[in-house]
Design a protein around this nucleic acid. Structure first.
Lengths: 202, 202
DNA sequence: GATCATAGGATAGTTTAGCTATCCCATTTG
DNA sequence: CAAATGGGATAGCTAAACTATCCTATGATC
């Protein structure tokens, strides 16, 4: 199909498609048969993914490009791709810093051993940043959070086992990560609001 | 003090201070004594608050203006102000929608009764949005989340009981809400990453 | 009292992100 | 053959959050 059809089928304006082509988010169409590029179902899937990542997850084009780059990298396995998507959606940092003292109580042979270095680094970095901001994390709170997230992590949401393509896999993981994160924060807000009204003994 | 001193003491450029004055984030200085405005410690506190809300919490000026408006509204009590700050930091919606079916199992006389309507509405809205997106919330996951956030909500972080001013109170609540939310999500990422490596039976 | 820096208001420019619109010309389809 | 379209290049637009420049009245200093 040509640009106009790709545009009407995807619901993305022709001008935006050209823009995504320029930015490298979308591969150029095949110009084998004719000098006019021919776009296939892969382009349609990619545009759907971009729409979802922008509209639902709220990612910027730089993050989207990192994800599409991972999808298009045949050397990146499915698990690694999912990890990359999660990192980008949650804004996990890769910067390594020395372990924060509180990390010792959280990560160790008994629990959370071998945790992904990106998630670990990111938590570590946040603990340091809280210290710098003069709001050091409360160890008691941390312990309760740890128990709570352990329960949550125990149920594998089992995203996307049956995704038809790497684009769909990435989209499903991104949407799931984003929405379930929001869900957790909103439920916490409700629970806290409810407590605030009934008081701490409620 | 005059603009230049306010600028050097707060670390905010004179041009930005003028901008905040124009935008109504910062009250004009007193022109009682002289036609040159005189700024006091309240202006310094306000600039500190703006810096924190932008730099640490990542709010936009519209959100900041809602918060400063609440601070400056003498009709708004301390608890209401804290609720408003939390709503803005978490992006809670006030739009009312009919209750989602899953809300019945969460909010009721047994638990989370009388929860703040903004937090409740926002959760309700998210459940509807997940349906629309074709990713309906899993009730089993929801039940685990509810148990987890109940534990977390049980410990009152007890923010800011001793804040010296409404500006400081708002800043402390905003920073706490933001950072502890981040902390929860990052800890969840670590826990999930750890499970993904060890497998579901870990 | 003259001077020179500054205050504060107004206005316009800058940067980044993410598009959107216009030109242009080769091609291509009717 | 003619009107339309594709694709590349380029420029424009909008929003947010500043930043810089002008201007004039004023006030501190000598």
């Amino acid at each position: 199909m040509q640009l106009k059809e790709l545009s009407s089928r995807s619901g993305v304006s022709g001008a935006s498609i050209k823009f995504y082509l320029r930015e490298g988010l979308l591969a150029p169409g095949s110009t084998a048969a004719s000098p006019r590029a021919d776009y296939g179902p892969g382009h349609l899937r990619r545009l759907e993914l971009i729409k979802t990542l922008r509209g639902v997850v709220g990612l910027g084009l730089a993050g989207i490009k990192e994800i599409t780059g991972g999808i298009d990298d045949p050397g990146l396995g499915t698990v690694e791709l999912m990890g990359r998507v999660q990192s980008i959606v949650l804004g996990l940092a890769e910067e390594a810093v020395p372990d924060h003292p509180l990390m010792a109580g959280l990560v160790g042979p008994g629990r959370w051993a071998d945790a992904s270095s990106r998630a670990r680094n990111s938590l570590n970095l946040l603990l340091h940043r809280m210290d710098e901001l003069g709001v050091p994390a409360n160890p008691r709170v941390l312990a309760v959070y740890a128990a709570a997230v352990d329960q949550v992590a125990a149920l594998d949401v089992g995203h996307a086992e049956q995704a038809a393509s790497r684009d769909e896999l990435a989209g499903t993981v991104a949407v799931g990560t984003h929405l379930y994160g929001e869900l957790l924060l909103k439920m916490l807000a409700v629970a806290q609001a409810s407590r605030a009204i009934r008081g701490p003994e409620g």
